[in-house]
Structure formats: structure tokens, C-alpha cells
Nucleic acid binder design. Structure first.
Length: 228
DNA sequence: CCATTAATATATA
DNA sequence: TATATATTAATGG
């Protein structure tokens, strides 16, 4: 079996997809939101699982007038508001026009009783998220900010890069700001890193893709930026 | 809205 | 104390 975490969780918007739940959307409460709409306000009691049917939703933690992006939920991704412990204020926002379905715990139990596959996928999604946040925690402890950004590019290259003449192309729509939010590196620092990578002709980022001209050099840079 | 740059302050090895 | 990173603010695409 391939490594699920690597396949799904470098950018936290592609956790293990729970496709089987699609069939049961009629059992829950379906709502549509427009881009920028809040799906669940900070402080609001959320006792449902929010299942993303289409579009894209983001989950933030709020604290001390600051907000921290935890993850994005795209199609087939559930956002748990029913099973886990509540950790402070959670803000769920629609990033695009989105359709979501609210499931209660009881509804999900009913589904799981009759559908092992849905159950398994749901668990896999949970495990995938758990793995991602362990990964992030490790990155924070073991690597410098610059190394974290470089490592993210490197990981993306290995998992999603397409090779042509030793040049890797990653088709991914990713802003520097998003990379900043995911890696915990300040957006100005991220900008400087990409500026340097471009100047050195190692990596070039456009709005829709990342091109790696010199993978060995990228790897060298990661090592040079490791903590000693 | 997103990216870049400079000046300055903090943090870390 | 030297280097890396964050912060803030100003500016341009």
C-alpha cells in the first residue's frame, strides 16, 4: 500500500476523500454558501460534521485576535464538529461558492452501520488529518523556516511533479500567502525565498505551477538550511 | 487582492 | 555577536 499521507497531505486541502458519503447527502441538511460566507462562526456551537459536496471551505482557529489556518476542505472532505474535542474558537469559511452537507453524529452512525466503505473512508480521512498535523509539528521542531518552505516544494515535486528533461513541473494553484500559512513562515520571508530561488534558477513559481529547474540544488539548499 | 522591497526589530545558534 | 526571521510600512502589478 502506498503512503497515504504523502499522497494526500502535503498541502492540507486534499485529505483522504470520503467519496462514499456522497450517496447519503439526502439524509443530511444541504446548504449552499457564496464565496466569503461564514459557515460556522467562532463561538457557535457546532455539533455536526460538515461534508463538502462541492467548492472549497477553510477552517481557522481564532485566538488573541489572530487567526491560524488549519486546513482547507475541498470536495469529499468532512470537517468534524461532532466527534472531536472543541479547541477554542473555530471559524469555518466558504472560500468559493460551495455546497456542504451537515450530518449529525446519529446520521453518520446510521450510515456507517450499513456501509463499511463509508466508515473506512471516514476513518482514513481522520487518520490522514492526524498524520498531517503530526507532520507539521515535526517540521516545526526539526527545521528552520527556510528549510520548511524548501522541503514543502521538494515534497510537492516528488509526489506531484511531472518530469520533462530533468525539469519538474508541479501543477498547483498556490499563493505565497498560502504557503506562508501552511508552513508557518512569514509571507515576506516566503517571498524572499522564492525571489532567491528564481535568481539562482533553481525554482520558478507562477500562479498556477511551480517549476523546478535544479532538484539536486534544491536538495542541497535544504541541507544547508537545516538546524545544526 | 497578491507580490515585492526596504528599513528596522527580534530571535536564535 | 553574527545570522536568520519577523514585523511594518510603502509601493507596484
Amino acid at each position: 500500500m502506498t503512503d497515504i499521507n504523502r499522497d494526500y497531505c502535503i498541502v492540507p486541502d486534499n485529505f483522504y476523500p470520503v467519496k462514499s458519503l456522497q450517496k447519503y447527502v439526502h439524509m443530511g441538511v444541504v446548504r449552499k454558501y457564496r464565496k466569503g460566507d461564514t459557515i460556522s462562526f467562532p463561538g457557535e456551537v457546532l455539533d455536526r460534521v460538515i461534508y463538502v459536496v462541492s467548492g472549497k471551505v477553510s477552517v481557522y482557529f481564532l485566538e488573541d485576535n489572530k487567526q491560524k489556518l488549519m486546513y482547507y476542505a475541498c470536495r469529499y472532505c468532512p470537517i468534524d464538529g461532532a466527534f472531536g474535542f472543541k479547541i477554542g474558537l473555530i471559524h469555518v469559511v466558504s472560500e468559493e461558492n460551495s455546497t456542504v452537507c451537515f450530518f449529525s453524529k446519529e446520521q453518520l452512525f446510521e450510515i456507517f452501520r450499513q456501509d463499511d466503505e463509508a466508515h473506512l473512508e471516514f476513518l482514513s480521512n481522520f487518520a490522514c488529518k492526524c498524520g498531517f498535523f503530526m507532520y507539521v509539528s515535526k517540521e516545526m521542531d526539526l527545521y528552520t523556516p527556510t528549510a520548511r518552505v524548501l522541503r514543502m516544494i521538494y515534497e510537492l515535486c516528488l509526489t506531484k511533479g511531472k518530469v520533462v528533461d530533468n525539469i519538474y513541473e508541479i501543477d498547483i494553484k498556490l499563493t505565497q500567502k498560502t504557503i506562508s500559512e501552511i508552513t508557518g513562515v512569514h509571507f515576506v520571508s516566503v517571498c524572499r525565498i522564492f525571489g532567491w530561488l528564481k535568481k539562482e534558477k533553481i525554482v520558478h513559481k507562477t500562479p498556477n505551477k511551480i517549476i523546478i529547474y535544479d532538484l539536486p540544488r534544491l536538495k542541497d539548499m535544504i541541507n544547508l538550511n537545516n538546524k545544526h
